[in-house]
Write a protein that binds this DNA or RNA. Structure first.
Lengths: 156, 156
DNA sequence: ATGAGTGCAAAGGCTTTGCATTAGG
DNA sequence: CCTAATGCAAAGCCTTTGCACTCAT
């Protein structure tokens, strides 16, 4: 799936997302509980990876330890991915096969991270070049991460 | 400067590196002490970003707190850059204007990170595309970070 | 009933900081 | 001499874990 989500102007298909999340959790022997649904929904409605404080605020009544534990479970289930940035907290986002491939605008000034989609032809060109490179290095390439580092609109 | 270093087969120009490091430290009112020289040398001879444990081992007799403090100073001076990965420790490398622009092969299995250089034409193509994108987003682009995530030769 | 999930509090582990000592200009 | 730098130990802070309670099946 790659139904509409925050990158476009369309509304996220919440039902489909829930079904898929539940399915992936079931695959690893886990339930789609209310806490987990709240975390997934918060991530689905954000246009950038969320930190734990942001997630706690967005969900309202999820205990911090539960948030960490459930994010870990969701990560193992392939529903969310941890995004490491230079700021103090880890950030989380839905996996790319749920939201679509994208990259990040990282503001070196305030630390803000925003999702951005790179034109398809650029991605293809890049992927071809990286495949060749990986093969040459004896490296099994799974995917690439690309961050644009600079100063966001608000800080400049 | 961008004298020879670990990416090529050439030997790092230690003297020039020291001069440049000392100069940049002086610019921010800091000295090029023996501990800092040891850290810089260790980074110059590695072919991948080093974690604190690796740096402590490579330097031998630098106290952990001094390593952290000096890396912070070197970072402010623009001599080293912190590289954030998904593993437990932060990693450090010399800044790209000292070593040349490069990217990282990140092994999702063992966490190893190795430097890799992408062909110039690919970089140019990418930079042009990203400039257009950044302008459209009202973002002042300074540089990009590109990681190849997969499985390294040793783990596959 | 029975195991998964939850929440509070305590523990862990990387990183930072306080402070007395040492070294460089 | 005098300030910067160093090293040890203690403190911080994000994250993980222990444990008893609750909920769903």
């Amino acid at each position: 799936m790659s139904t509409g989500h925050r990158h476009g102007s369309d509304v996220p298909d919440v039902a489909a997302l829930h079904t898929e999340a539940a399915s992936r959790l079931a695959d690893v022997g886990q339930r789609f509980t209310d806490n987990r649904r709240q975390l997934v929904d918060a991530l689905a409605h954000a246009d950038h990876p969320l930190s734990i404080p942001e997630l706690l605020q967005a969900t309202g009544d999820v205990a911090q330890s539960s948030a960490y534990r459930n994010l870990s479970v969701l990560e193992r289930a392939g529903v969310v991915a941890k995004v490491v940035t230079n700021d103090e907290w880890a950030r989380y986002e839905l996996t790319e096969d749920l939201t679509g491939h994208h990259h990040h605008l990282v503001c070196g000034s305030c630390g803000a991270v925003r999702d951005v989609v790179v034109p398809g032809d650029v991605e293809e060109h890049l992927d071809r070049a990286l495949s060749v490179l990986a093969k040459r290095e004896g490296f099994v390439l799974q995917h690439h991460r690309l961050d644009l580092v600079g100063v966001c609109k608000k800080c400049s």
